[in-house]
């Protein structure tokens, strides 16, 4: 991606929705996700203009995941539906609740691998982890998520 504004605008336009969804899966609040995504993409634009960004996707997702991780240290993980949104399915609430019970880095691996579809090495570059650690986080995260969802379903059924 070049540092010219047309190229940057195209990049921002194409990446904003997916980045914002990833941020929402990380923080559970659409307003916060929008704020974090805007700040992240503004940094991508500013740093790309001065030629400081080699791979904008790695830069953007790494920055966004770090911002979400810092934010999650300071607040409870609470799912907040968008203002005026239709009723959210109970299954979705269970998934989000289970996702947010995972450690932030484990959650980031699952979001980047299973929602954004990045390869293991790309996720490792974004989260500053080696491939084995990414695999380990992924396996542990999926197992924990499955267990949490099953537990929640059982509790609801009971």
């Amino acid at each position: 991606m070049s540092g010219d504004d047309d190229g940057l605008r195209d990049y921002v336009t194409s990446r904003l929705p997916s980045l914002r969804r990833s941020a929402f899966l990380m923080c559970g609040d659409w307003d916060l996700a929008t704020e974090l995504t805007e700040a992240c993409l503004a940094r991508v634009v500013a740093d790309s203009r001065r030629g400081a960004v080699a791979d904008p996707d790695v830069y953007a997702y790494a920055d966004l995941m770090e911002a979400c991780r810092r934010r999650n240290r300071r607040r409870e993980h609470v799912f907040v539906a968008a203002a005026g949104a239709e009723g959210v399915a109970a299954e979705s609430i269970l998934v989000l609740d289970a996702l947010h019970k995972l450690a932030p880095r484990c959650r980031a691996v699952l979001v980047l691998r299973h929602w954004d579809g990045f390869e293991v090495d790309a996720v490792g570059a974004m989260l500053d982890l080696d491939d084995e650690r990414v695999d380990a986080y992924e396996r542990a995260g999926l197992a924990a998520l499955e267990r949490l969802i099953e537990d929640s379903r059982t509790a609801l059924a009971g």
Partner: peptide, 18 residues
């Protein structure tokens, strides 16, 4: 995918980013 059903529409976020 279902979790994101209530996603708000994107307004002037792109201009705000710039």
């Amino acid at each position: 995918e279902h979790v994101l059903d209530g996603e708000p529409v994107i307004g002037d976020e792109i201009d705000e980013i710039f």
